[in-house]
Design a protein around this nucleic acid. Structure first.
Lengths: 67, 67
DNA sequence: TACATATGTCAAGCATACTTTCCATAAGTA
DNA sequence: TACTTATGGAAAGTATGCTTGACATATGTA
């Protein structure tokens, strides 16, 4: 699972901390997602997509056969 | 988070066990998703959508403010 | 009745998502 | 230099997703 979080966040001129606050998660969670340390829960993925007014699949890109 | 898993599975004439095998998860996981005991990981949500050739958001319906 | 099939659900255990706390590093500025 | 801001990331703890194994119930059929 790849994601375009860092790209989209920067497009919007947001700091990790600001995005984290808006989504009610920790700054470390945002950093960990951006750097691929883990995948978001489906709930968080939806919150992110909703916040950016995008589709989940526009932000999180599934790559077959990888966990 | 609601989902249309049971409805879609039955439309396709599949048993829980058959769907589970196709997705490489346990039958209990499918049952638990259908009965709302927990939400899928984003990986499993994508596998399910891919299997049914649908969008994630057509199957899993986000309800604001609920975990 | 007896047996098979499909589903519901629990319990224990492991893996992963997310938290808080902490420290490091890089870039900008006084 | 010294200080601030933004980010990276480790460590330990909690919550949730998923597993296997077990048992229950409902339905259909011999």
């Amino acid at each position: 699972m790849k994601n375009r979080l860092e790209e989209i966040r920067k497009q919007r001129g947001l700091k990790q901390e600001e995005l984290a606050a808006a989504l009610e998660v920790s700054r470390q969670t945002i950093g960990s997602l951006e750097n691929g340390r883990y995948n978001p829960s489906i709930i968080l993925a939806y919150k992110i997509a909703h916040y950016f007014q995008m589709k989940v699949e526009e932000i999180f890109i599934y790559e077959e056969e990888k966990s």
